[in-house]
């Protein structure tokens, strides 16, 4: 989907419903920053970034029921995370996946996938991991080269790989 104000791909999607009328906003990174939706870059405390962070309304609704109850493993709610800036356990990363994705990406200046060291015991999943790393890197360079079609392809491939992961539903 393209940005409302230019031809770049939109990275922020906001759906607001006012008096029964749906308003959709789609903005590229630059215009989202200009509109104050994405905070300007630079090291900021994570909970400060959070209050300015807009999550796609759709995913928010789907996840809301879940996140209100909190993490089934440690009981942390997303509200609590917003206050403290700390997650409670590894499972939190799965439970709050939808809310965390964009936040993590911006905190890490566009980083979306681990590319570094892998514990030797992770064994079987390493090949897929390497593949994901390679694709993620290609995706980065496609985006910085403004090859958006290629980027979209890569993103799809990455998503497929993510879904194929054994134990993807059960957490790490």
């Amino acid at each position: 989907m393209k940005c409302d104000r230019c031809d770049k791909p939109a990275v922020v999607h906001e759906v607001n419903v006012k008096h029964g009328v749906k308003h959709e906003i789609h903005l590229c990174e630059e215009h989202a920053r200009e509109a104050g939706i994405i905070p300007s870059l630079g090291p900021e405390p994570i909970n400060q970034m959070l209050t300015q962070f807009v999550v796609s309304q759709k995913t928010k609704k789907r996840k809301r029921a879940k996140s209100k109850k909190g993490c089934p493993e440690c009981g942390l709610t997303f509200t609590r995370f917003r206050q403290k800036g700390l997650l409670g356990c590894p499972v939190c990363y799965e439970v709050f996946d939808a809310q965390l994705g964009g936040l993590i990406e911006r905190t890490h200046n566009g980083g979306t996938h681990h590319a570094g060291k892998i514990p030797q015991r992770a064994g079987g999943s390493i090949d897929r991991q390497r593949m994901i790393q390679r694709l993620a890197k290609e995706l980065d360079s496609a985006i910085s080269a403004e090859q958006y079609e290629r980027a979209a392809e890569l993103r799809d491939q990455l998503q497929t790989l993510e879904l194929e992961k054994p134990g993807n539903q059960d957490g790490p």
Partner: peptide
């Protein structure tokens, strides 16, 4: 690492309490 299992996630790497340390944790 030779002695224990770390909390590790295929996509996010080494898991940390604060997402700012995620990935390599370095």
């Amino acid at each position: 690492e030779a002695e224990i299992d770390y909390a590790f996630h295929d996509r996010w790497g080494y898991l940390t309490a604060c997402p700012t340390n995620l990935g390599t944790g370095i």
